[in-house]
Write a protein that binds this DNA or RNA. Structure first.
Lengths: 209, 209, 209, 209
DNA sequence: GATGAATGAGCATTCATTCAT
DNA sequence: CATGAATGAATGCTCATTCAT
């Protein structure tokens, strides 16, 4: 029972200036940056590459961002903001703890393998390219996001549906789900995102209604 | 029932010239390279950094390796060779499919969080820095390694102990286990490597004897 | 016996459109430009710095001046024009050659260390940043100014009060007086501008009435 | 009665590693840097200009100096070191205070208008391009140099040969002598360096034996 | 007039690689 | 084998100037 669509959530965030409009100059740059950082890595992507990808000159980049690193940070920050909102919506749409977990897994898989997938991969693989102070800023946002997961896993534990420790399980799931980006190709096989979600639940011996 | 020690395996590989002696010039360089690549990333590590780490001048590096990328490739190749041998030993030491899986998980966790951890992380995080042709070479070795896992998982499936697909489960485990490098600190908490292995088995609702 | 005040001279020049009104947009810009060029140097001062100093956007600067160099030239030209007028007034207010020289020295010290000090320093220290053709234009104005000095020094020579050559003495005085800007701080010590003028006359073994 | 030649002094400083051998790679670069900085200004001189002037590639500069500013600082530091040594020699070669002053003036004029002239001009005109911390380092050296002058001027004052204050006179002379670089051309007129020195002494109404 | 995004040439600096010693 | 100066292409970033609004 999705109360709000993904697109509605995005519009709210844009209105609040929390993420950039993907149709605007800044938003398009961030989309291309995520793609290039994912494809070639942050270091191997030059500001000239970034500029060319959105059809401007390299010098013009610096009207929108003061440094190349600021672009990396913006990709990460906006991705977390968007995904936190999507996770909250997924939680609100579910009743049981088991369904809530399924909702989170499904939503994270969608983030990782859908439109924001490149940005999600950047978040994982380019972490070290972020300066220490930027890392601290991003970690603050990340904590909010992770809290959503831990609350659900703790409920499952209390209900006796989960044998392992919530903290450890979340870490395992983070790795397992992130890693799908390296191999899961929806177009290729018969495995849909829902099917993949089922597999994860099955691996954990959990039932999803 | 470990038939052969880890050290014996290493000695065999060194004797066969499949991995470098960690006490030799080449081996020490690869160890330091793995550490630096993991710490700062391949791109941000300069050949001067590498040379300084083993106490030589940057020009001298090129007597041992033709290019910087060759160093990265060697780190990866030798790591896979060593770990393939370790996995095979783990399999030989176990009887049941469930114990075999536990052995693989335990061995991979040890690789990831033990002495070869840095090299294992490099294998994951610096993959894109490898040229296409080197990637192909490394992938060949990787296939052998992955086959060991798939065989065990397929047995478990046949035995009814595993509900999800072996291929998918292996990918999930790859991600989940690799990711431990980002958070698992044996010295810090009460969780030993064996405890961690138990958690993974528990998460999959598998019993380990 | 000052026949006309400094302010009266300034008003005449503004009326004749020879210098900009310091309260107008152009005048304020030139004042700020002199300050910034002196403080940071011409090259290190950006047009954005200049624009920010007068509260406009960088693009708007180019409605007042065609190029950044034109601003530098205007600072120099207007400074020479104003100082030439001030020197002429100083000469008219004195009787003897010795007093005339004292008047010139006193007036130049005031130019250098007073309100136009920053512009005077720019004239000296940023000379090379001026294009050859602009240098020629400014030099023409400078010749008029220098003529005033040479006439007085030649009179003194003829009167036997000066042993050295007028041409050389003027050059020495130019350097000595310009240099005061680097060390003379009227507010700090007991040395007033008149006291400093006396020191210069004393150094030259000249009496000033 | 010059006890030691200028060249002998230079050789001592080179031997003590206080200044670079003008025939070495570093020394030649500093000479060319002084020339270019003087001619075009520090900011307008690119590292490519500097490299081209000594016949190397721009990247190679950074084997000798870590930054462009380090080159500027080295020009200044070595110039002050050399001139301090030359001044000390000039003092030792003179008897009376008046002769000592003449020696200092003569030596400084030679520094300014001779081989180190360009470097001396850089010291004056490019001062602001030096970072605050480098300025502090250079100022320490400068204090030693200035002390030599003040001691002589104070002696003259005590002897009644100087009416003005030593501190002020030194500042005036600094400006006057530095400024000669902008106009004095020995080859052009009949004025030799000795003649110019005489003019300065005459301007101050001092006799030189 | 004023704006501010865009330009594009230019800058100091980095760094893997080479090679004479 | 080792050195370390030299290379030269590439990088992130700056900035005077333009121009559509």
């Amino acid at each position: 029972m999705a109360l709000v669509s993904q697109n509605q959530i995005l519009q709210c965030l844009i209105a609040d200036n929390l993420v950039s409009d993907p149709n605007g100059a800044r938003g398009r740059l961030l989309t291309e940056a995520a793609r290039l950082f994912r494809e070639k890595g942050y270091e191997r992507t030059t500001v000239r590459d970034l500029a060319a990808a959105v059809g401007i000159q390299s010098g013009s980049l610096f009207h929108h961002f003061r440094t190349k690193e600021e672009i990396l940070k913006a990709v990460m920050v906006e991705t977390i903001r968007l995904n936190t909102a999507l996770m909250q919506a997924a939680l609100e749409a579910a009743e049981s703890s088991s369904d809530k977990l399924r909702g989170l897994i499904r939503a994270e898989l969608e983030s990782i393998n859908g439109q924001t997938g490149e940005a999600m991969a950047v978040l994982v693989f380019e972490w070290r390219s972020l300066s220490a102070s930027s890392q601290a800023d991003v970690l603050e946002l990340r904590d909010i996001y992770e809290k959503l997961w831990l609350d659900v896993l703790e409920s499952l534990r209390r209900e006796g549906a989960l044998a392992a420790e919530p903290f450890v399980v979340r870490r395992m799931l983070t790795g397992a789900l992130s890693w799908t980006v390296t191999w899961y190709k929806p177009e290729r096989g018969g495995l849909t995102l829902d099917g993949l979600t089922d597999q994860v639940m099955a691996m954990m011996a959990l039932k999803s209604s």
